[in-house]
């Protein structure tokens, strides 16, 4: 009894010390220093760097003060809409292609070389051609976002099938599975985690590409906001836009992680 009391006391003491040295304190110090440093440099160099406060005000103003005819949230919605449309197209085309490439060596031999040829060309490089073909409207943007988003989808779907442990096929065969059941019960579920990893990369790629596309000719969207901030020499608008872009990127990736946990609850095994 007495011993456990002493242990308790030291435990509390150790915990307190740990906390003071813990990373959370360091995190707080780091963030505070960062904001102070930012504020001081902004004060000295106001024309180029907005103060943190100004960025915040810019964002709050954006809630009901339109920029180029639309409020901030509408701009964000335009970017998201482009991403979702292109993302859906990329998934609908990319997953079947990737699965087929992983499943059949013959199909792979036909598609892989073309795919390898296209892969090193950044999707953004296609924007000029897309504009030439489709004009500055939605189609050209969606087109290059699809180009950007489809690569990881195809790659991961393909590898997802390739990297399935062959003994799982042995197991299903020993249990009496035919080739149709083999695909339904092993191939698809076993490649799901890899496909999902591809979808995650793909979504962040799509987000990057939409920003890039909007930088190059748009009348709305988050990319437009920051390039507009540049052309009207309003750094607070640029940094505020960047913040919104970053937070959205972060939210999208959190969303995908949650979705993944929902759809592949067994995946934790792969991470250990």
């Amino acid at each position: 009894m007495a011993i456990s009391k002493i242990e308790n006391k030291t435990a509390v003491k150790i915990a307190l010390l740990e906390f003071l040295r813990s990373k959370y304190i360091l995190y707080a110090i780091s963030l505070i220093l960062f904001i102070i440093f930012w504020d001081i440099s902004a004060k000295m160099n106001g024309r180029f760097l907005p103060r943190p406060w100004a960025v915040l005000m810019e964002l709050i103003n954006g809630i009901n003060e339109p920029i180029a005819g639309k409020i901030l949230i509408v701009h964000l919605w335009y970017s998201l809409k482009r991403v979702f449309i292109a993302y859906a197209i990329a998934i609908a085309i990319g997953i079947p292609i990737g699965l087929l490439m992983g499943y059949s060596k013959l199909i792979n031999a036909w598609i892989k070389p073309i795919f390898d040829l296209f892969k090193p060309m950044p999707p953004i490089a296609w924007i000029s051609l897309a504009i030439l073909w489709f004009g500055i409207g939605e189609t050209s943007k969606v087109f290059i976002i699809v180009l950007g988003a489809i690569v990881p989808v195809i790659l991961n779907s393909m590898n997802g099938i390739r990297l399935i442990d062959p003994s799982l096929y042995h197991a299903i065969r020993m249990l009496g599975g035919n080739s149709r059941q083999e695909i339904l019960e092993v191939t698809l579920p076993a490649s799901l985690p890899a496909i999902f990893a591809g979808l995650q990369i793909s979504l962040s790629m799509a987000w990057t590409t939409v920003v890039a596309a909007e930088l190059m000719g748009a009348r709305e969207g988050m990319g437009f906001i920051i390039i507009r901030g540049m052309s009207v020499s309003n750094p607070a608008m640029i940094v505020g836009g960047m913040l919104v872009i970053a937070v959205t990127a972060w939210l999208l990736s959190v969303l995908m992680t949650l979705l993944e946990r929902r759809i592949c609850p067994w995946k934790t095994e792969l991470e250990h």
Partner: peptide, 27 residues
């Protein structure tokens, strides 16, 4: 291979996406 022979593998080889029930009832 066929279900008239039951094989237990050295490396477990359970279907990771199936629960215990899902694995056992698979056959």
């Amino acid at each position: 291979p066929g279900p008239d022979r039951g094989l237990v593998f050295q490396k477990y080889t359970l279907f990771p996406w199936k629960t215990v029930m899902g694995n056992v009832e698979m056959g």
